[in-house]
Write a protein that binds this DNA or RNA. Structure first.
Lengths: 215, 215
DNA sequence: GTCTATACTTCGATAGAC
DNA sequence: GTCTATCGAAGTATAGAC
């Protein structure tokens, strides 16, 4: 094995950024394909595997096109994140408005693709300041939306703030989801996962009853 | 900004691995310094920022020395992981044998350095098969040790398996720790963190009483 | 809109002097 | 044990032809 070539260079590349550069439109099919390729690479091999050459290869175009649509790699990452974040937010909103919001939130959170991308973007944010603020804001937005709904739903089931504050429920669900995805996806490990899922679902069942198929 | 140069190359480097290469001893001070540098880079900038040149720079030596002590970068990552994993395991063992094992386990798990490194190594494992098995085994070992002790401790406090199976408690503590570290460390976000910590510690207090300083 | 060609930087890894 | 020097590959980004 071997490899890995960086992650956080003091950018000394010939980035003159002439400001006169051309840029593709946001509605382009090709552009969307590049976002797809980026997402796929992040899922399969992690953010560090995303390079203009590889994205281009996966998308079936030449590397220079990547820079035609995205001035820098940071721009590419940001665009990929934005598209995904919007989808995820809308998806969660639908879940929270369903007839079994707790079950639905649990299922949405447990989607491993979402958890893996969340971790990858968080890792990316760790050393790319330009991306950090945006990811942070989106995560905050998602949690606040959960808290808003959970406050009402939990109260409706007689769960008091002393039992479990809504924001704590939100953190718990997120924490469990991330850990399971990390262990199963990255490490192929699953000790305790079944038991944990059963335990959570037992709790959901006591509150919202049996899960009714509407997935 | 810019940068990032890979993570998972189809190794086409001139890795002839002649097998006649020299290799430094495991007890070397310099070697330990290289492991320190690797760990620091991972904490500060993520695993993708670890390159032989950068490790050498942080350690204050020349890049070729990295390859004198570690044949490949994978070897360097593995050695860094092993050292850390042994420390962490011993640390946890001491905690679990203390007079307030639940409190101690919670505090050990909450060390953000540990959580961040855990995530970085998991991300690394995601696309470095050579490393994956070892990390997975270590994580499993840590969890099993927790379960062993938790089984006795929880039963002693009258917590039945129906209330909360020991392995579920272990997963919950790990999940919360990882999420808090990820959000606070990588994203600078802390919504709900204080409430969650208070909630967990309220639970610990009911089981083991007030935390007695022995940290 | 897409491509070829190219500039420049960094990477992993090795050979061989000291 | 540590260094200099070097190879070959891959990275970001740009210019300019088509």
């Amino acid at each position: 094995m071997s490899s890995l070539q960086l992650g956080d260079r003091p950018n000394t590349y010939p980035t003159r950024v002439v400001a006169t550069r051309r840029l593709g439109t946001e509605t382009s099919e090709t552009r969307a394909g590049l976002l797809d390729a980026t997402e796929q690479l992040m899922l399969d091999s992690g953010y560090a595997a995303v390079s203009s050459r590889r994205v281009a290869a996966v998308a079936g175009v030449r590397p220079a096109l990547v820079h035609y649509y995205f001035r820098t790699m940071d721009d590419l990452f940001l665009a990929t994140f934005r598209r995904r974040a919007e989808e995820a937010f809308a998806h969660q909103q639908r879940a929270l408005r369903s007839t079994q919001p707790l079950w639905a939130l649990w299922e949405v959170s447990r989607d491993p693709r979402g958890s893996v991308l969340t971790m990858e973007f968080a890792a990316l944010a760790n050393h790319r300041p330009a991306i950090r603020a945006e990811i942070s804001a989106a995560a905050e937005r998602v949690r606040m939306q959960q808290v808003e709904v959970l406050t009402e739903v939990l109260a409706g089931h007689g769960v008091t703030v002393d039992d479990c504050p809504p924001v704590v429920a939100a953190v718990l669900i997120a924490g469990i989801s991330v850990l399971l995805a990390l262990e199963q996806g990255s490490l192929g490990m699953s000790t305790g996962h079944g038991e944990t899922i059963a335990h959570v679902e037992g709790y959901l069942r006591r509150l919202e009853g049996e899960r009714r198929v509407e997935r």
